[in-house]
């Protein structure tokens, strides 16, 4: 069976590299085909890599509080570039300040992200969601 490919990276001008490495190791061990773009990744880079690797999901990290600005428009660009079916996950310290998480989640959902995670999420939970969502999309395509 074809390996399920995903693209990872830290968006914008964010240089937080440690968590990104952990995500890469974790998802590779979980059996995903991981393309890790590292830190300071632009929306275009995420999309370019997702096209070439035929990724089923883009996992965006943002830890420096500018997530709302950096992540806006990624869904629309994906549609423009022919990735209308791709899953978009986002996680990290997405906004500055003490906004309640459900509010943050609502904002990113509105921007077209399928799942939104807080920084303390259990990664196995994310992997379980990812498998489920990818299965669902594959089913829908056939």
């Amino acid at each position: 069976m074809k390996k399920r490919n995903i693209v990872l990276g830290v968006i914008g001008f964010d240089c937080h590299a440690v968590g990104n490495k952990i995500l890469e190791m974790f998802f590779a061990r979980e059996g995903f085909g991981v393309t890790n773009l590292g830190v300071m990744v632009s929306q275009e880079e995420f999309i370019d890599a997702a096209i070439e690797t035929d990724a089923g999901a883009i996992l965006v990290s943002s830890l420096y509080g500018h997530g709302l600005i950096d992540c806006r428009g990624l869904r629309e660009k994906c549609v423009e570039r022919g990735l209308e079916d791709i899953l978009l996950y986002v996680g990290g310290n997405l906004v500055v300040g003490k906004t309640p998480f459900p509010e943050v989640e609502g904002k990113f959902r509105e921007m077209g992200y399928d799942r939104v995670f807080s920084p303390d999420v259990d990664l196995s939970e994310v992997a379980a969601f990812l498998r489920m969502d990818l299965d669902e999309r594959t089913g829908r395509r056939h």
């Binding site: 074809k2 390996k3 490919n5 085909g33 096209i51 070439e52 690797t53 035929d54 990724a55």
Partner: peptide
Amino acid sequence: VGGTEGGHEK
């Protein structure tokens, strides 16, 4: 050319 190994096909 096109696609990484195990990547794009369409």
